[in-house]
């Protein structure tokens, strides 16, 4: 570990202990420890193939780890299916945007309300009065989130017809609709020009201001260094450094991992 052990004042929201995942002979995650403080913007960087996306997949339950433990606010998530983690407050966006192709932008975001609403297949048949009002509430909530991310005018477009930057915003909106405590953003600025990158940084700050803790994978160093108070560096599945942006910039192992110096 480089730098002073600058312990966060609050207890960590997310605690990852000795998390390990192998694919055949490749170690995607080798006993990774990670603590993300409540209300932090925490960056995860590293060269391609460092295990960043695998970390997100394990945190969200899409991939089962070989060893290790994941807890959120003290609750053990390690064995929980993906949808339960979402209900407990972990949600994500995807590196290669995964919106629901046949749905409008609004419907994509309304789907995000699924775990915060009730009503099975029989509910709409019983015509219970609060069901109708709940549907209206779901729509209002989704519209409010779209307003927040700046897509109110595109609610009724098919999500996959939007320009790339707007698709990424839709994904963020859909994740916000689940009311996450911890939001995992997987390269939110990938493929964006400078203006769009500045806009997405602004959006991430506004999400953070709503008391959402953010774990951010990103290749654009300007974005990571500008947003994050703490950064973890992965290389070949190992954590090689952790600290504030200034410490990371100065860390010899980080420079080596990025430049491939020997």
């Amino acid at each position: 570990m480089s730098g002073p052990p600058a312990r966060s004042v609050s207890t960590p929201l997310l605690a990852v202990e000795q998390l390990t995942k192998r694919f055949g002979r490749v170690t995607a995650l080798g006993a990774v420890d990670l603590r993300v403080a409540e209300r932090a913007i925490h960056g995860v960087i590293g060269p391609n193939g460092a295990g960043k996306t695998t970390l997100f997949n394990v945190l969200t339950g899409l991939v089962a780890p070989d060893a290790g433990r994941v807890t959120l606010g003290g609750i053990d998530l390690t064995r929980l299916p993906s949808f339960r983690r979402t209900a407990l407050g972990v949600c994500r966006t995807f590196q290669n945007v995964r919106l629901f192709g046949s749905m409008t932008v609004l419907e994509n975001v309304m789907l995000g309300r699924h775990c915060r609403t009730r009503g099975g297949a029989l509910a709409p048949l019983l015509r219970l009065p609060w069901r109708a009002s709940e549907r209206a509430a779901t729509r209002r909530d989704a519209e409010a989130v779209l307003e927040f991310v700046g897509l109110a005018g595109k609610a009724h477009h098919r999500a996959v017809d939007l320009p790339y930057g707007d698709q990424r915003r839709t994904e963020i909106a859909r994740a916000l609709a689940t009311e996450p405590r911890l939001l995992l953003l997987d390269e939110p600025a990938a493929g964006m020009n400078e203006t769009e990158t500045v806009e997405i940084a602004d959006l991430i700050r506004r999400v953070h201001a709503r008391d959402v803790t953010i774990l951010l994978i990103e290749h654009k160093m300007s974005l990571v260094m500008g947003l994050c108070e703490r950064v973890t560096v992965l290389s070949f599945g190992e954590k090689i450094a952790e600290g504030d942006p200034a410490e990371i910039r100065a860390d010899a192992r980080v420079i080596e991992a990025y430049l491939g110096a020997r």
Partner: peptide, 23 residues
Amino acid sequence: ARMGLAFTALRDDETAAEAMGVD
């Protein structure tokens, strides 16, 4: 209603549906 949207989500992308909280 709510379940109809979940059906469509599952058809469009099962992984994303699970990650967004659909059982």
